[in-house]
Design a protein around this nucleic acid. Sequence first.
RNA 1: GCCGACAUAGCUCAGUGGUAGAGCAGCUGUUUCGUAAACAGCAGGUCACCGGUUCGAAUCCGGUUGUCGGCUCCA
Length: 604
Amino acid sequence: MPAERYEESYLYRLRHSAAHLMAQAVQELFPKVQLSIGPPVENGFYYDIDFPQPLREEDLARIEKRMKELSKLDQRIVRTEVSREEAKAMILDPAIPGNGPDVAEFKLQLLDAIPEGEAISFYDQQRTDREGTLHRFVDLCRGPHVESTKEIKHFKLMSIAGAYWRGDVRNKQLTRIYGTAFETADELENYLHMLEEAKKRDHRLLGRELGLFMFSPRVGTGLPLWLPKGAMLRHVMTDFLQQEQLKRGYLPVVTPAIANIKLYEKSGHIINYRDKMFPFMEDEERETYILKPMNCPFHIEIYASHMRSYRDLPIRYAEFGTVHRYEQSGEVTGILRARGFTQDDAHLFVTPDQLIEEFVGVVDLMQAVLKKLGLTQYRVRVGVKDPHSDKYVGDDENWEAATAAIKNACDKLGLEYELSEGDAAFYGPKLDLIIKDALGREWQMGTVQVDYNLPERFDLEYIGEDSKPHRPIMIHRAPFGSLERMIGLLTEQYAGAFPFWLSPNQIAILPIADRHIEKAQEVAECLRGTIYDTRPLRVSVDERRETLGKKIREAQLQKTPFMLIIGDKDLEDGTLGVRSREEGDLGAMTLSDFLGKLPHPSAS
RNA sequence: GCCGACAUAGCUCAGUGGUAGAGCAGCUGUUUCGUAAACAGCAGGUCACCGGUUCGAAUCCGGUUGUCGGCUCCA
């Protein structure tokens, strides 16, 4: 039996009804509010409401209390279908609880947005009290809902947020109340417990505990400082990807952090990207410089430095390029969204004939990278132009060609993807890999972008077989997306227990007493001289005068994959006490036996 | 940037108008130890910052900064 779709489930209706119950409670407690929309979402529901005064978080308890009371009243939830005219009259009728001309602003707009021919329905939460008076709460809504408010028992209001009407910053900001609801008390309990557990996997917490990176207010918001273990992680990841790229014919380049603004005027960034750039710099000769938000114009300059032949193409310039973007203060999130970050960037300059093959090659590389990193849960989004926006450069023909190329390549790969209007880069459409963090938030990771426009803006050429100049096409791509985001995500994915090949410290050697230190150092040296997965093994020696138990505990909390214990017995027998992070004590064995126990590099 | 919340020692937190506390981490000494925390002592804070109310502010009020959840945006 196929799994029931969430949108068709009872839980979905229950949450939708919980949103309505909340709206009813809010309306009673704050009579002047205007309701807008209140849908179920992945883990609960929300309702966007316009409050005359600001709502404080402590008000949630009152609302929740009233919801409990309303729920117990066993109000029947009744659907009525009406004509457009009747609907308008109802929304404007102050005699109907929840409606009236003072609170109709958003509901009228919603009514207008309902396409001709589609059913228009209201849901009415009604009850008759002991005196026989009918109480109602009536809300324009597509539904469906549960049958009675008494079914809504296990819920919790979670948080308050501002949310723009219809998701547009130019519109009024409404107050969004998030809540969740479940069929049973246990499920609600489990969900809240799960949230607590997820917080322990937060990369910001683990980043500090594991000594990967830090932030300092003296340095600035969103500007991470990489500590030795985090820097080691970066090194391993870049080294791994660099090798993959060299195998595939990429050429390394290195470019500066700043450039004359003229370069970025030509690329279109100044017009299209300025609000995300750090403030400009001016030198004594009145030249203006910018801190680069992207690497592409530099790579383009390298391409354009001399005449290219079709025989030279494809050219693949790769750089771990550190860029800075002035992200809005409210958006910065640890290293998942920083203001300074390093892209595993490359720009491919290709002929039209090579486009699909090169695109496929990039996606193949991305899939290989994800496999090695152990990331299997991701979705593929093809971001195309929003036809109603003017934030793009280039003519429609180029956009269509680029979009067609991406779709074509996906079909060739048998890759499933979703189309998303408005998610293109300003210079071209793109394919993105999207992965969830510990708290279920989605992040754009790897990206491949097809670009006809920057080659045109920079008048790039190559001489074809016909000895005439032709325009190359560019592919922008970053399999990780950025080192920061990828490391943040991997940290959460593995709860800090990185696979052996990636772990910043792979082996902790723990001498039991001072007299075992010499041997420990000897073993460390030997291991550091051993190449594993193309790199020397990463080994630490804990020389502190602490008990073995404590050294083990700390190595374990640091999620070190292996511990090697050296005591008197080992000196006598020429062995090591081996302990694994996952399996605990593995007993005494020789160094070469231990090396045989290491996971095979290709099986990560 | 906007809406809401939070900010006390390196970390986790207690402290509701009257002399700043605990555990862990740190330092010193003792202990030389076999698979998740040895023992003792010591030190550590402009209670984020600035201003106000008050005889007196960590505590009440205003502002700023930083952080967290969300919106918009994004690798």
